[in-house]
Design a protein around this nucleic acid. Structure first.
Lengths: 204, 204
DNA sequence: GTCTATAAAGGGATAGAC
DNA sequence: GTCTATCCCTTTATAGAC
């Protein structure tokens, strides 16, 4: 038993199952697969988790725990709104871009639309960030765009960038620089702040 | 045999399987489920398709056929770049927002990352649109943003809007208007054209 | 072309020895 | 807490009658 309440073996099981669930989805992973990855038999899994469903749910809980809290506290580090937008973009890039497993799990959960698991996503990922940058959204929106939609536009731009990578890399015009976190952040910030018709001279 | 090369029963099978695959994914759908929806037995499916894998692939082909061609030809209907951007946004909203099955299939395919099926997505959906609005992208980008990334920013804003709807609807600040196609289009066009710091007086 | 019957494999879960 | 053995159900796919 460690601080998370899981035994060492239970943690090994959770950590072994996550890449499998991320890559092949709930139905694509057999208890035998997880057991084999850990190095035990399927029967032994049931000493730690009551069944596949709860194992999956607890694996999600484990994957989403503390992902956001450690980072989102520094969302307000910049004094000006533009800087805080850049921080938020970088934050999402770090969360979503840096962890292919988390991203895959998120995507699968948004497709599956299970109520309980959507709650988990909300409580552990989206709600904490939303609460923390609500005022920043209002400042940025300045009453000219919808704050709620703005939050999801920022999130969506980052999420879709990574999500569409398999497509993006296969279309003409792709470039290695498009995978660089800082350049992506700069590109998205410029687009959001100044738009296509805006004037950003002196800021680039 | 009709024009698509499929018998009437084969078409019924394809059309019955698509909502199932969209909702529950490849592994979540049994041949029995599809057969039952059509009103035949699972064994009879094999008179029309050699196996589950090919049925799935051909269902995708069927779902993606002609989705884009009919619409994307009018992408250039507007003479000015801003109008063409609005057209492109509305086009994606129509394609992605209007068809929950197509959208779910797309999402699942982007998670699964099967090479052959990614090719299908490219050939039937993304490449045709990309080719048709390459010059519009260049005009809009005006050398100040990356054209390739701009294409995916537009696509991503629309796609993620619908994809994140389950989350969006559960966060404070949501509004019924956020589901209205025209308002979404206006919001995204304004954001892309003028940005958060831009001046759009006289355009909104 | 569809049916019933069935093979063959896979997968979740349990019993009981150690 | 893990193992082997096994149960039981599901699932893909085929065989052969109609």
């Amino acid at each position: 038993m460690n601080i998370s309440g899981y035994s060492k073996t239970a943690v090994k099981i959770l950590e072994a199952s996550l890449p499998l669930f991320a890559a092949r989805g709930y139905n694509g992973v057999a208890m035998r697969d997880i057991a084999q990855t850990v190095g035990i038999t399927a029967a032994a899994l049931y000493n730690h988790f009551s069944g596949k469903e709860t194992l999956y749910y607890q694996a999600l809980e484990y994957a989403f725990a503390d992902k956001v809290d450690s980072l989102s506290s520094e969302l307000h580090a910049s004094p000006d709104p533009d800087g805080r937008l850049r921080r938020l973009i970088s934050f999402w890039i770090e969360i979503l871009g840096g962890d292919v497993i988390l991203r895959s799990l998120l995507q699968r959960e948004m497709s599956d639309a299970d109520e309980q698991r959507l709650r988990l996503l909300l409580d552990r990922i989206f709600m904490p960030v939303y609460e923390r940058c609500k005022t920043t959204m209002a400042t940025l929106a300045r009453g000219r765009v919808d704050e709620h939609l703005l939050f999801f536009a920022i999130l969506g731009l980052v999420l879709s960038h990574f999500q569409l990578t398999p497509i993006r890399k296969r279309l003409p015009g792709c470039h290695p620089e498009h995978e660089d976190a800082e350049r992506i952040a700069a590109h998205l910030a410029r687009l959001l702040l100044y738009g296509l018709n805006g004037n950003d001279s002196g800021h680039g």
